[in-house]
Write a protein that binds this DNA or RNA. Structure first.
Length: 971
RNA sequence: GCGCCUGUGGCGGAAUUGGUAGACGCGCCAGACUUAGGAUCUGGUAUCUCGCGAUGUGCAGGUUCGAGUCCUGUUAGGCGCACCA
């Protein structure tokens, strides 16, 4: 019978949908397993062959777990808020919701084709009010929480307010934006507005004046992970630093927990390492330095400032101090005589973009005119201002030790400041000695008196750091401090197509819309662009004010500042909706709470999460933070949201380029061009008759092999219609090719629909898995797909006789059959557990080949084969399962376990080596001991010629592996 | 600069975790059946050599009876962080 995949796949797709084969509910009689894919943003381009890679891998695992008797949750949904739909709306006026729904429809169609075992009853969309109600709810909970650093947990803000009423800010151990100090009396004397402002310093979701990444081109702020190399990740527009009032999430409060949690989860080392880097914990010391500003008259001690260092041991090598230009200390420490110079410098730094500062690290700076006093020796040290010190890290001020820090070294050389080496034997004449190793000397130098006779001479660096820390703490010169690089997340965006904030401004005080009035729904606007006065697009909404009395959204013109107030104009960023969607899948239709207690208890957390590694410092951090917060609230039952993470690699595309002579409309075949290395030696450039040619993407549909279909290309775009094409001697126009990310804009997209139509979804699934290790990126190459298709056809033919009868019998399997089968069970089971699907596909091919040769028709064997194959090729499996007379889905079969007995050999043929070289092979009984094998080898006739005239040094016999005889010539 | 990962035929990639390197697929070569095939089937395919045999997992060392696998150094590519004190 012919393998008619089109008929088979269409039929089962329909059946599964009608019978809700993949619908799942909590059930106490079965253990749960939660498989999750990162949900897609439904872009206008639809799915390409890269998207399903992870979905297929997780679907195989989900089906496998189900066959093993687990109750498997495998949901899918859409991350529906995003910039492309909004930009399309700005251009065309079409509402983003319309675009989004259209795209979702197309995605769903494409996904359905591929035979996934998703429970579509649990679909979520981040833009649906039922869904974002809970995004808003979580935000409000964060607003109403603070973080206790002693117990490392979020607590209700009411507790903090009560504390302030009784104790003020004294002896406070909470996460905050800045350390404030006030008494209970002061607190109680403040009005509502003042109290609100102070509380913002502690809330987990807070309104803050912070330096933000402002992207003028996009008209919005961006989070740190959305800025790459000083330009926006999306679009590559320049980003500048700007001080703005924004909503923020106090992610930094969870730094330590986010770091510790990494040790408890099974993620790849590289992604854990990336997160550790991003969190950037560094243990160090904060030290206070008194300073002396000569312009302030009559007082010796004007005050002090604090620096942060991880190298407290180098205190005797400090020869200058440096402040960040943006630091608030700059004002206090600038002497009148230096004022003009300092102001000019600060202005210069402000004029530099983030990108400029990143690219060139030239040494710049200016003397402040003030001196700091080394608390250990009383020495006066000049204070400088330089952009190499960052305002956002530590205290924005450092002690500079040029001998042991390369940046300080460069600065000292430039400004001709002294360099005092401290590590014995370190040569600092050419460069600094940065390593944290060696024996400390010169600390202090001979004859220098120090506070309490403190000395580090003779200690190792490690001991010296510890000793200094202890001394600093005891003498109240500072404190031990752990710093993190992780910044609070900026949580508001000047955009339309996002979750609105459930916040209104009551007499200037940000106030939460009552919980039972949620969600605050996204209003209609006439224009999706920002307003003329620079307000976000929600400023265009007419009905956008909060009626406090009637608890509803009303017309903006009614605002009276008594009972009707303006609503927040910002919307939430992309990561808001994706931070807790895995929880919502557990109980997606619950209108009373994010998830019910029962659902949460049953499903716990995601056991297997599959998605791209590009989310390492974005979604995967925010989501962990969000979950930890909900865990503190008792909503999530697990400290970590994703127990195991598999990062599928990207499938890249082969882009094609035509080459156009610069400034003309003349196109030249690639093989006629001259190759040169570009000036920066990093890339190649191509020239035709001495003129440079620009590569231009051509749609890959006009290219076969590397030859361009010139007519097709001409008709593609009007500007190409009249172009001149210079072909090679064979009359062909050759394109150049390169592997790039698969993307609509690169015209290199391969669509799964065509593959499905030609080979079927099961072949596509098999092939994508066969392509290589799941975690590796690889270019899409259709060449090998025939092999997978042939395999399915071969397997299919195993089940049918020539006259289309099902070819199975009830005869007992032969020993050979069982060996083939159990070898396969073992291999496939082990492979699936470690996601090594690319090696199970060949195992199937070998097994099918063997069974074919054995002419196996045994029901027992062939049924098991179908079960093993069904996660990979579900339609194929389901069809044969039913053809063999079952009336339940193959999903409800049982995954077989293998039996070692069938794999055991009576005898085993091993290579016999002399001095590590294989000479011949020999058959041993399967249970031969090394001693017996040794005997057999030495007495064998074939061995004699190798043993002749030789002395036996050693015989190594490894059962089931090898026998090696080590010999050397006899003396 | 710091950290992580990867280097195996013409190609994608295997190798039971230290035991006969190159499974399986693609491609290529030969053959069979065919009027024909971009269909199907069979056999071959790391390199050098007529052959015996020798060489071979980026490069150089080391450990071991034995190394693609472990260790040291080096080189190339990819990724992450990056003036983080």
């Amino acid at each position: 019978m012919e393998y008619n995949f089109q008929d088979i796949e269409a039929r089962w797709r329909k059946q599964w949908a009608e019978l809700k084969t993949y619908h799942v509910e909590p059930r106490e009689d079965r253990p749960k397993y939660y498989v999750l894919n990162m949900f897609p943003y439904p872009s206008g381009a639809g799915l390409h062959v890269g998207h399903p890679l992870g979905y297929i891998a997780s679907d195989i695992y989900a089906r496998y777990k189900r066959l093993q008797g687990y109750n498997v949750l495998n949901p899918m949904g859409y991350d529906a808020y995003g910039l492309p739909a909004e930009q399309y709306a700005i251009q065309t006026g079409q509402h983003p919701e319309v675009t989004t729904n259209e795209n979702i429809g197309r995605y769903r169609e494409q996904l359905d084709q591929l035979g996934f075992s998703f429970d579509w009853d649990r679909e979520v969309r981040t833009c649906s009010p039922d869904y974002y109600k809970w995004t808003q709810w979580a935000f409000q909970k964060m607003f109403n929480s603070y973080f206790c650093t002693t117990c490392q947990k979020a607590k209700p803000i009411e507790r903090l307010i009560k504390y302030f009423e009784e104790h003020g800010a004294e002896d406070l151990h909470v996460a905050c934006s800045e350390d404030l100090s006030f008494s209970a009396e002061e607190w109680n004397s403040w009005d509502a507005k003042q109290k609100s402002d102070v509380l913002m310093n502690y809330r987990l979701a807070y309104l803050g004046e912070t330096m933000v990444n402002w992207c003028p081109e996009l008209g919005t702020v961006l989070a740190n992970d959305e800025v790459v190399n000083g330009v926006s990740e999306r679009g590559g527009y320049p980003v500048e630093q700007k001080r703005m009032r924004q909503w923020c999430l106090r992610v930094s409060a969870y730094s330590q927990r986010l770091l510790d949690g990494l040790n408890t989860i099974q993620w790849s080392d590289s992604i854990k390492e990336t997160q550790r880097n991003w969190i950037g914990r560094s243990e160090g010391t904060e030290m206070q330095f008194r300073y002396h500003n000569p312009s302030i008259d009559g007082r010796e001690e004007e005050g002090h400032f604090t620096i942060f260092t991880t190298r407290a041991d180098t205190i005797f090598g400090v020869t200058f101090m440096v402040l960040a230009p943006e630091s608030e200390l700059v004002g206090q420490l600038t002497a009148d005589s230096q004022k003009a110079e300092v102001e000019a410098y600060v202005k210069y730094v402000k004029g530099r973009t983030e990108r400029e500062r990143m690219i060139d690290h030239k040494v710049t700076g200016v003397f402040s005119g003030s001196y700091a006093i080394n608390p250990f020796t009383g020495t006066e040290i000049p204070v400088y201002i330089s952009e190499y010190v960052l305002a956002g890290y530590g205290t924005g001020a450092i002690m500079a030790v040029p001998a042991h820090d390369s940046r300080d070294y460069a600065f000292a050389k430039h400004f001709d400041l002294p360099i005092i080496p401290l590590i014995e034997g370190a040569d600092v004449s050419e460069e600094s000695f940065d390593a944290k190793e060696g024996i400390v000397g010169n600390s202090p130098a001979a004859g220098v008196e120090t506070l309490d006779g403190f000395s580090l001479n003779g200690c190792t660096v490690k001991e010296a750091i510890a000793k200094t820390k202890q001394f600093v703490t005891e003498h109240h010169l500072g404190r031990v401090k752990v710093n993190y690089r992780l910044r609070d997340a900026i949580f508001s965006r000047q955009r339309y197509w996002g979750e609105p904030f459930p916040v209104y401004y009551k007499q200037g005080i940000p106030t939460m819309v009552p919980e039972d009035c949620l969600p605050v729904q996204l209003p209609e606007v006439e224009d999706f662009k920002p307003t003329k006065t620079g307000e976000p697009p929600l400023g265009n909404a007419k009905v956008w004010a909060w009626d406090e009395v009637n608890c509803k959204i009303v017309d903006k013109s009614l605002v009276d500042e008594q009972t009707i107030f303006p609503l927040e104009l910002f919307t939430m960023p992309g990561f808001a909706g994706s931070s807790a969607y895995y929880l919502r899948y557990m109980d997606p239709h619950n209108n009373e709470s994010l998830i019910s207690e029962e659902a949460s208890q049953y499903w716990q957390s995601v056991d297997l999460y599959v998605g791209g590694s590009e989310h390492a410092t974005g979604h995967l951090i925010y989501s962990r933070f969000w979950n930890k917060f909900l865990y503190d609230l008792g909503v999530s039952k697990s400290e970590e949201p994703f127990q195991k993470l598999v990062n599928q690699g990207m499938i890249q595309g082969w882009s094609s380029f035509v080459h156009r002579v610069s400034g003309t409309s003349k196109y030249v075949s690639f093989d006629l061009l001259e190759e040169r290395i570009s000036d920066d030696k990093k890339s190649k450039e191509y020239y035709y008759e001495g003129v440079k040619c620009d590569p231009i993407h051509s749609d890959i549909s006009f290219v076969s092999g590397n030859v361009l279909n010139v007519e097709g290309f001409r008709q593609w775009r009007p500007e190409y219609a009249e172009a001149e094409f210079v072909c090679n001697a064979q009359g062909q126009f050759i394109v150049s090719q390169a592997i790039e990310k698969m993307s609509k804009s690169k015209y290199n997209v391969v669509n799964p629909d065509d593959i499905c139509a030609r080979y079927g979804a099961d072949t596509l699934r098999l092939y994508e898995m066969f392509l290589g290790p799941i975690e590796q990126s690889k270019p899409w190459d259709v060449a090998g797909i025939d092999g997978c298709f042939r395999f399915l056809k071969k397997a299919w033919n195993l089940y049918w006789t020539k006259d289309d009868q099902i070819a199975i019998t009830d005869e007992a399997p032969t020993k050979e059959n069982l060996k083939t089968l159990h070898k396969l069970i073992k291999k496939v089971t082990e492979d699936i557990e470690v996601f090594s699907y690319n090696t199970s596909v060949p195992a199937f091919m070998v097994a099918v080949g063997e069974l074919q040769q054995q002419k196996c028709q045994s029901r027992e064997v062939l049924e098991t084969l179908v079960v093993l194959l069904s996660p990979f090729a579900p339609h194929f499996g389901e069809e044969l399962w039913h053809a063999m007379g079952h009336d339940t889905s193959v999903c409800d079969a049982q995954w077989p376990s293998y039996c070692e007995d069938y794999l055991r050999e009576d005898s085993v043929t091993l290579g016999v080596q002399f001095n590590g070289k294989v000479r011949y092979s020999m058959t041993f009984s399967a249970d031969a001991t090394p001693e017996q094998m040794q005997q057999q080898v030495l007495s064998a006739e074939e061995s004699q010629k190798y043993l002749d005239g030789m002395q036996i040094m050693k015989v190594v016999a490894v059962p089931k592996r090898i026998v090696n005889v080590v010999v050397k010539p006899q003396q």
